[in-house]
Amino acid sequence: MTKNVSRKPTAAELDLLRLIWQLGPSTVREVHQAAIKDRPDLASATVLRLMQVMHTKGLLTRDETQKSHVYAAAQGQDSLQTNLLKDLIHKAFSGSAKDLVMAALRGHVSKEEKAEIQKLLNEDEK
Rank of each mutant, 00 (worst) to 15 (best):
L84E: 14
E123I: 13
I36S: 04
D41W: 14
V53Y: 04
K126E: 15
M1R: 03
A92H: 08
L121C: 08
D41S: 15
D78L: 01
T46N: 07
K8R: 15
R106M: 13
H32E: 06
V53L: 08
M102C: 05
V28R: 15
A43N: 01
G76C: 01
I20C: 05
N122V: 13
W21Q: 11
L85I: 10
N122K: 05
K37N: 11
R39Q: 02
E64S: 09
L120G: 05
K3I: 05
A11W: 12
I89N: 02
V109Y: 06
T56S: 14
T10Q: 10
T27V: 07
R49I: 11
Y71V: 13
K37M: 07
V101S: 02
G107A: 01
S68L: 11
A43Q: 04
M51R: 01
G95K: 04
K98Q: 00
D87A: 00
I36E: 07
V5A: 08
L105H: 10
Q66G: 00
V28F: 15
L17Q: 01
E113F: 05
D87M: 00
K8M: 13
G24S: 05
R39M: 11
G58C: 02
E13Q: 13
T61C: 07
A115G: 08
H55V: 04
T65Y: 09
L48S: 13
K111R: 12
T27L: 09
E13W: 06
D38Y: 12
L105F: 04
K111E: 09
R29Y: 13
L50V: 03
V5Q: 10
V28M: 10
S79K: 04
L42Y: 11
I36L: 02
A45K: 13
G107E: 00
H55M: 11
V31L: 03
H55D: 12
A11C: 10
K114Y: 07
D38N: 14
D15P: 06
T56A: 13
Q75S: 07
T61K: 06
Q22R: 06
A35V: 06
G24C: 11
D38V: 07
D41I: 12
E125R: 08
E64M: 11
K114P: 05
D41H: 12
H90F: 05
T65L: 13
S110T: 14
S94T: 03
G107D: 00
K111Q: 06
K119F: 13
R62Q: 14
L19P: 03
S96R: 01
R29G: 12
L50P: 02
A103I: 05
I89D: 02
Q52A: 12
H32V: 09
A103T: 10
L14V: 15
E64G: 01
D124I: 04
M102Y: 02
R7V: 04
R49C: 02
V53F: 09
H32W: 10
N83C: 08
Q22I: 14
M51C: 11
M1F: 01
H69L: 08
D38R: 11
T56I: 09
L23H: 06
V47C: 03
T46M: 07
M102P: 02
L88N: 00
L17S: 03
L88Y: 03
A72R: 08
S79I: 13
S26Q: 07
E123Q: 08
E113I: 08
H108L: 04
Q81G: 00
L84T: 08
H32G: 07
